[in-house]
Amino acid sequence: MKLSFEIVPVFEKGFRTRIYTFRLNGEVYSEFKKFEINPKVISHPEFFTLISRIDQIRNKYGCRMDWFKDESEFYKIDAIKRILCGRGDLRLYCIRWSDSLLFLGDGGIKMPGTNRLQENPPLLAIVKKLESIYKELMDCMQDEGITIEEIIRRYSRR
């Protein structure tokens, strides 16, 4: 089965959580790299808090449910989340596969005065992208009768 993306390892050797991201076919940067190099994101006051939280999730505590918020808009996919960070407007979306496996997506800054994802088209697009990636992963597991670990082995960039 051909996927429309490749899986890019970010940290495969985290003490508690392995972290990956996706690079869509035809795109230059992976989803998480887009976030890491987004100047608006980098200059956000809570950016370093978020980076620090990801590091703690990776090395110390794992992906505890309390630190994520459901964000799936259309398909209500439980695994589509954002990492909670302060009460601000910085968003980083992800697929929380398990307590120890996390796929980071892109994110951005919520537009002021809006509460719903639908009111933020750029963020909505990121979530939709993750939803479609998740569906592709599930289809691949089902069609080929393989686990997520096998998908990572087969479809990740080395």
Partner: peptide, 9 residues
């Protein structure tokens, strides 16, 4: 991505 992350960290 990992190098960037470490740089940011």
């Amino acid at each position: 991505e990992a190098e960037l992350f470490k740089e940011l960290l």
